[in-house]
């Protein structure tokens, strides 16, 4: 399942990434394989989204969230 498909409030575990360049940036920001991740809220206009990962809140666009594959 892609992160972009995770319902709000549900928790997931990061498995892998589909985009290498994006994955480097995401991992630097603490989105690592094995890390617990959840969607906190969606922006009022439907995009971007705010996620909780490694103890803080991160916002990213849905297109970017779709490169994160969950277990």
């Amino acid at each position: 399942m892609k992160l972009s498909q995770l319902p709000i409030g549900k928790k997931g575990i990061i498995k892998e990434f589909t985009d290498l360049e994006m994955s480097v940036k995401l991992m630097e920001m603490g989105c690592l394989p094995g890390e617990e991740i959840s969607i906190q809220r969606i922006a009022p206009l439907g995009d971007p989204i705010a996620i909780n990962v490694s103890g803080y809140m991160l916002s990213l666009r849905k297109r970017e969230a779709s490169t994160i594959i969950l277990q």
Partner: peptide
């Protein structure tokens, strides 16, 4: 640069 939008939402 590639158009990233990966941004911390600080408390």
């Amino acid at each position: 640069e590639r158009g990233y939008f990966i941004m911390e939402l600080p408390v």
